[in-house]
Design a protein around this nucleic acid. Structure first.
Lengths: 223, 223
DNA sequence: GATAGTTTCATACACACGTTTGAAATGCAA
DNA sequence: TTGCATTTCAAACGTGTGTATGAAACTATC
C-alpha cells in the first residue's frame, strides 16, 4: 500500500508555486523544497516534470468542468430544460472566479493555477486543452436554447467575452486595484460574478443580429 | 558612426520570436540564429537579455500609448473637449486590436509582443509597467467627463472589461476560431473593435449605479 | 525477525542557458 | 598606409536545470 503522502505534498506545493509564479519560473528544486521532500521524489512519483504538470492540469480541469456543468444542469433543470442566459453564463464564469478571488487565499490556488494554464502553453498542456472546446460547446448549446433567435456567431462572441472578463479579472487583479486605488472590491466575489454576467448578458441581448434588441436590453438593464 | 544593422536585426528577430512563443521559451541562441548574427552580439549591443527585453518593451509601450492618446485627443477635440464614451473606448482598444489581428501578419508582431508582456511578468518589465497605470488614468478622466453621473468604480470596471475583451481576443484567437469553427471572423479587425466597444459601452451605460439606466441602454442597443 | 517490495535520500550526470573573453575583422580619420 | 576605435566572431565559462543512479531506510508479509 503506497503512502501517497509525498505525492500529495508535491502536488500541493507544485500547484501553489505554479499558481503564484508561473510554470517557467518554478523549478523542481523549488517544489521539493516547498513540499519538504527529496528532489528525486518528483521523478519517482510522476516520471517527469511535464507529467507532474499534466496530472495537475487534468485533475483541476476535470473538477472545474464538472462544477460548471453541475451548475448548468441545475439551472436547466430548474427552468424545465431551458436555462436563462444569465444563469448559463453564471455557471460558466462563477466557478473560475469563486476559486480565484476572495479573501480566503487557500482555495484560490486551484483556479489560479488554471488561469496560468490558460496563459502559458507548456507542451503537455496544449494536447489536453483541446478537450476544453468540447466542454464549451455544451454551453453554446445551452445558450442556443436560451436565445433561439440569435445567430451562433453572436453566442460564440458572447461566451468568449464572458470568459475574457472573468479571466482577465483574475489575472490582472493587481492592475485593477492599483488603477482604482482599491475602490474596486475584488473580495466580494459574488458581486464580481454578477458584474461579469450582467455585462456579458447585455452584450448578447442587445446583439444587433437579433430582433427586439431594444426591449430586451432595457428589460435586463432595468433589473 | 555605429552601423546599427545588427542591433536592428536583433530587435526585430527578438520581437518576432517573443511574440510567437513567449519570453521564457525563446533563448538568446534562438534570437541570434533568427537574426543571423553572432551570439555575443546581444550582450555587446544591449548588455543583457533583460535589457534587450526592456528596450523592446519601452519602445512598443511608448508607441502604443502615444497612438491611444492621439486618438483620444482627436475624439475629445471633435467633441469640443468631451468625447463620447464609445470613442474613448475605441481609442483605448483600437490600437491594440488593429496591431494584433487582421490578415497582414507583419505589423501584428508589435502588438502581439505587448500582449505577451501583459501576460508574462519578467523582472525588467514589471518595473516599467507601473507607468501604464498613469496612462490608463487619462482614459478614466476622459470617461469621467463623458459619464459625469457615474461613480468612479463603474468607470474602472468598464475600462477593465474593455481591455479584458480586447486582450483576450488577441490572446485566444485560436480557441475562439476552433470553438466557432471559423464562424467568428477575426480578420475583420474593425468589426471586432466595434463589437468590443459596443459591449463595453452597454455595460457602462446600463450600470446600476447611474440613473436612467433603462433608457440609456435602450438608446444604445437600438442603434 | 527475515525477506521482498516500496520509498527516500544524497549525489552525480548531461545539457542548455546567459554571459564573458580575447583575438580577428572591419571602418574610418589622418 | 598607419593607427585607433568599433564591431564581429568562435570558443569557453559558470550556473542552474531536469533527470538518473545506487545505496539506505522503511513497510508489510510470511
Amino acid at each position: 500500500m503506497p503512502s501517497d503522502q509525498t505525492r500529495t505534498a508535491i502536488l500541493a506545493a507544485a500547484e501553489r508555486l505554479y499558481a503564484e509564479r508561473g510554470f517557467s519560473d518554478v523549478t523542481l528544486r523549488d517544489i521539493v523544497s516547498e513540499a519538504n521532500v527529496n528532489l528525486a521524489a518528483v521523478n519517482y512519483h510522476f516520471g517527469s516534470k511535464d507529467e507532474l504538470i499534466a496530472e495537475l492540469f487534468v485533475t483541476r480541469s476535470l473538477a472545474l468542468n464538472r462544477e460548471r456543468l453541475r451548475r448548468l444542469r441545475a439551472a436547466e433543470e430548474q427552468g424545465g430544460g431551458r436555462a436563462e442566459i444569465a444563469d448559463i453564463l453564471r455557471a460558466l464564469v462563477g466557478p473560475t472566479l469563486r476559486g480565484c478571488l476572495g479573501p480566503e487565499n487557500e482555495r484560490a490556488t486551484a483556479a489560479r493555477f488554471m488561469i496560468r494554464v490558460s496563459i502559458e502553453s507548456v507542451p503537455p498542456i496544449r494536447r489536453i486543452r483541446n478537450r476544453e472546446i468540447d466542454h464549451l460547446r455544451k454551453f453554446v448549446a445551452a445558450m442556443r436554447r436560451a436565445l433561439p433567435a440569435h445567430r451562433d456567431v453572436e453566442l460564440y462572441w458572447g461566451l468568449h467575452f464572458a470568459l475574457a472578463m472573468a479571466q482577465q479579472t483574475v489575472r490582472d487583479t493587481e492592475r485593477l486595484a492599483k488603477l482604482s486605488e482599491g475602490q474596486c472590491d475584488v473580495d466580494d466575489v459574488e458581486a464580481v460574478i454578477e458584474r461579469v454576467v450582467r455585462v456579458a448578458v447585455l452584450g448578447l441581448i442587445a446583439s444587433p443580429a437579433s430582433g427586439k434588441t431594444t426591449e430586451r436590453a432595457a428589460a435586463v438593464s432595468a433589473r
